[in-house]
Design a protein around this nucleic acid. Structure first.
Length: 857
RNA sequence: GGGCGUUUAGCUCAGCUGGGAGAGCAUCUGUUUGACGUACAGAAGGUCAUAGGUUCGAUCCCUAUAGCGCCCACCA
């Protein structure tokens, strides 16, 4: 057997493992040998094919992968599906940019040629993403990889569209939408990001037609004044009594505007008089409908003013704002300019200021569809959120959401499957493509999220209900995603799933937080505080990054990424590496594992098994709750402290002193526990555990073929276990004592040990070795046999020193006794506290008193 | 305006059903102990944001307050 290298090198360990696993089909779901196992299914939130995976992807995929590997070793047939998103707007913007840099305008080459370019882009970037996935150590099923724009998805999307269209849930209508003048497309409400921007509030004079007086009207957007068709005030506003129906002069163009009263206007805000621009403000639009006002669009798609704006036509909207203010000022109609901070909507993608605009678009009528999800939640509680608080956020959104604008004025995406008959003008929605000689297809494409919403079922083969993948793995068992795409994705998957498959598309949703920098700031290019996961991997390895990400925080909470944590993880892995190396050095060449007989186990063996079994239980409990950080913490502490610091050290004594026959037991225990520790750690750090595993005697082809330890029998003599705990405490006390008294750590002390002694020699050796002290056992078989916890009596050769120490100890004991007595004298405590708590306290007091007696006799 | 989260050691964070406050890093002291100096042994460091309440008992439950952060809505 090849030996483990002297020191842990993540480069060597991680090289080639993904290939090995993949070649051996460990990542594939629905292999014949697994078909009788219970299933567990997840998909990765499809990353955009725009390119680079960031630390946010890393935490998301790491969580999913840990669960996938855990489930796999727990005996499930796991589907962890690889997929990517065509990311309409984002990708199109990138491709356009690339073409521009080559001096190509997309309109010159046309739609078809542009799409060819986009597909080329997709192929290149998909390759790169796959490489990154593999670097992150993901165990996705690549053989079933899907893309939101692949053939199957086209069919699914068109099927969904047509059904919603036929059922009246999709309609085309003219409404105020959010327009991105840079990308020249409509956006949905949630693609608009609001920020508190500095701005100006302009107060203008609106003269009455007869010039008898003027009204003050304030606006933040003077450039829209060409689109004004009224000035409004609240009907209860005394200031404007009797003015309704009169006309005022629009100071930007001299045209007359009616004054009208509408409840919408807030008397407290601004001047109480509001200009109404129906084509460029959703509220104004509603007012216009109520009062049948004309609706005038005054802007082009690129954010320049259109021909309704006289001399300003063709001017950029912000230039126009300045120009109009200047003109009004020159006309002496400017009253004042106030600096304000107000909420301004920006495009999520281009970051430009979004222009609300009247536009004919396709919409999904959300209320009935959303309500179906809410109803299902209430009836069956189908989707379980973790952490639970996100369930309310999820539901509130569904209850309040508006219609969803799904059409985008782009080329890259699912083209809307609606056609106009060129001859008859008839509108036809069709799943299959219609002949373009006879029919003209709607030029727009669908919002990317429209297709990714179908992912849970469409990626599994829907609408083919007989697809084996769909039959076996739908609905998904778990969806893992960050809270920032609950509205974009989780909600929409939910309503589409419920509508088309009559069930929630996933049973459970695990929501994790965002990764921030070590000071909790959002990572951003301008701050230069971004963490590139692949740089971290290069330096510390994937295993370390994974472990750090899994233990860095708690579910639902943002993680402040601290490189210290990765270093800690790396040191931890090094620790296991070396512990394993030590063990492999020990084991005889012909070692064959035999389950050690219980009655052959030493007190130390029993002790470690006991700790091991209980830690297994805690780990499994937490893994099942997806409390990965908690599970990893248990594992970390067990490996560092119980296994390495304590048990490995114990074995050094017995291995030195015992016969080969006895040592065989120790070898078996060591082997057994180490092997299972590798299995427990495997989900978090798959590479190093696989590497070590393959060096173990009797290793199978891969650690993948091991099973997660479960159903362990933990029936040991608690007295023996307490004894070892007591020994550990004793060593601590002695070391502590030496340090506090400026004695060298290996200074010899004579120690009297009080308690019922079983493995006399072992204990003696142990204490001599780890406490460097001679042991004298006093009161062998004294009256109580459980007093292992407290037994320390130090005897140094120096009598004075000794009395100091005893005095200190007595003081301590008296304090403890006082505390315990006080609690126990409280009748309410004795009456009302749980009996085991009371008993615990009594036992403690008992021990303290007994120890004190020893010193005082 | 509505909702949510958070406040624990110098820093980054754990703390699962209420029963003597934990880790890693940083700091200080010591150590060629049978794998590991990427280590080992130890020390120091906390009014668990504040004020009330419930309870025999509160970091944990309730109420208020404050700081920090997020989400939704949105006023021209």
């Amino acid at each position: 057997m090849e030996e483990l290298a002297k020191s842990y090198s993540h480069e060597n360990v991680e090289k080639g493992k993904e290939d090995f696993w993949e070649k051996n089909h460990y990542f594939e779901a629905m292999r014949e040998e697994n078909i009788n196992k219970p299933r567990f299914s997840m998909i990765v939130p499809p990353p955009n094919v725009t390119g680079i995976l960031h630390i946010g992807h890393a935490i998301n995929t790491t969580i999913i992968d840990i669960i996938a590997r855990y489930k796999k070793l727990s005996g499930f047939d796991v589907l962890f599906l690889a997929d990517m998103d065509h990311a309409g707007i984002a990708t199109q913007a990138k491709v356009e940019e690339k073409l521009r840099s080559e001096g190509i305008n997309k309109y010159d080459i046309g739609r078809e040629a542009f799409l060819k370019e986009a597909w080329k882009w997709k192929e290149e970037h998909a390759d790169y993403i796959t490489k990154q996935w593999r670097a992150l150590g993901l165990s996705m099923d690549y053989s079933k990889e899907r893309f939101t724009l692949d053939e199957g998805m086209q069919k699914a999307v068109n099927t969904v569209f047509k059904r919603l269209y036929d059922e009246g849930y999709i309609y085309r209508g003219e409404r105020i939408i959010n327009w991105d003048p840079v990308l020249k497309t409509a956006l949905s409400d949630i693609e608009v990001v609001y920020s508190q921007d500095n701005g100006q509030f302009y107060y203008f004079k609106y003269w009455l037609e007869d010039h008898s007086r003027y009204l003050e009207v304030a606006t933040t957007r003077p450039e829209t004044m060409f689109g004004d068709t009224a000035v409004c005030f609240n009907p209860n506003d005394e200031r404007f009594k009797g003015l309704e129906g009169k006309m005022v002069i629009n100071p930007c163009n001299g045209e007359l505007l009616p004054l009208l009263a509408d409840r919408y206007v807030d008397m407290e805000f601004g001047t109480g008089a509001m200009k109404c621009t129906p084509a460029h403000d959703p509220n104004d639009y509603k007012i216009a409908l109520r009062h049948k006002l004309p609706i005038i669009k005054i802007m082009n798609d690129d954010g320049t003013m259109n021909d309704k704006c006289g001399i300003y036509s063709g001017m950029d909207r912000f230039e126009c704002r300045k120009a109009i203010v200047k003109k009004i000022q020159d006309d002496d109609n400017l009253i004042k300019i106030e600096n304000i901070v107000h909420n301004v909507g920006h495009s999520e993608r281009s970051h430009t200021v979004v222009e609300p605009m009247l536009s004919k678009q396709w919409f999904v009528k959300m209320q009935p569809l959303a309500q179906a999800v809410v109803d299902l939640q209430h009836e069956a509680g189908q989707i379980e959120f973790f952490p639970n608080r996100f369930a309310n956020i999820f539901e509130n959104w569904l209850k309040n959401t508006d219609d969803w604008c799904i059409s985008r004025q782009l080329w890259w995406g699912h083209r809307i499957p609606v056609y106009t008959n060129k001859m008859t003008g008839e509108i036809v929605c069709s799943v299959d493509k219609l002949d373009n000689k006879q029919f003209e297809q709607d030029p727009d494409v669908l919002d990317t999220w429209f297709s990714s919403a179908l992912a849970p079922f469409a990626f599994l083969g829907w609408p083919d209900l007989n697809n084996p993948l769909y039959k076996r793995f739908y609905p998904l068992d778990l969806m893992v995603t960050a809270y920032d795409i609950i509205f974009f994705w989780v909600e929409r998957m939910a309503f589409q799933g419920v509508h088309f498959t009559n069930t929630a598309p996933f049973k459970k949703v695990y929501i994790h937080g965002l990764v921030r920098d070590s000071q909790g700031r959002k990572m951003s290019k301008s701050l230069g505080n971004g963490i590139d996961p692949f740089e971290v991997i290069q330096k510390y390895g994937t295993d370390s990054l994974r472990f750090a990400l899994a233990t860095g925080g708690t579910p639902g909470m943002d993680v402040n990424f601290n490189i210290n944590r990765v270093e800690k993880a790396h040191n931890f892995l090094n620790k296991i590496w070396n512990a394993s190396r030590y063990l492999l050095m020990l084991l005889p060449n012909d070692f064959k594992y035999e389950k050690p007989l219980k009655n052959k186990l030493s007190i130390f063996d029993q002790w470690i098994y006991n700790k091991y079994y209980s830690v297994c239980k805690s780990i499994k409990n937490n893994m099942d709750k997806y409390e990965l950080g908690q599970a990893a913490e248990y594992l970390y502490n067990f490996i560092y402290n119980d296994f390495c610091s304590q048990y490995l050290e114990f074995t050094k004594i017995s291995l030195k002193n015992n016969s080969y026959e006895q040592n065989k037991v120790t070898y078996n225990v060591l082997y057994d526990i180490l092997k299972n520790l590798l299995v427990l750690l495997f989900p978090f750090a798959p590479f190093i555990t696989e590497e070590i595993y393959q060096h173990l005697p009797q290793a199978k082809n891969s650690i993948y073929e091991e099973t997660y330890p479960i159903d362990l029998d933990n029936n040991f003599d608690s007295t023996d276990i307490q004894l070892v705990d007591a020994l550990i405490d004793a060593v601590k006390l002695i070391r502590n004592f030496k340090a506090n008294n400026s004695l060298s750590p290996n200074a010899h002390l004579r120690i009297e040990f009080i308690g019922d002694i079983k493995d006399y020699n072992l204990i003696k050796d142990y204490l001599e070795r780890f406490a460097f002290s001679e042991i004298k056992f006093a009161d062998h078989n004294i009256e109580n046999s459980v007093s292992f916890k407290v037994f320390s009596l130090f005897i140094s050769s120096d009598e004075n020193e000794m009395s100091d120490i005893i005095a200190k100890r007595i003081e301590e004991l008296e304090k403890e006794i006082a505390r315990s007595t006080k609690i126990l004298q409280n009748q309410n405590f004795v009456k009302k506290a749980k009996p085991e708590i009371v008993q615990k306290e009594k036992n403690k007091l008992d021990l303290f008193v007994k120890e004190l007696k020893k010193y005082k006799k």
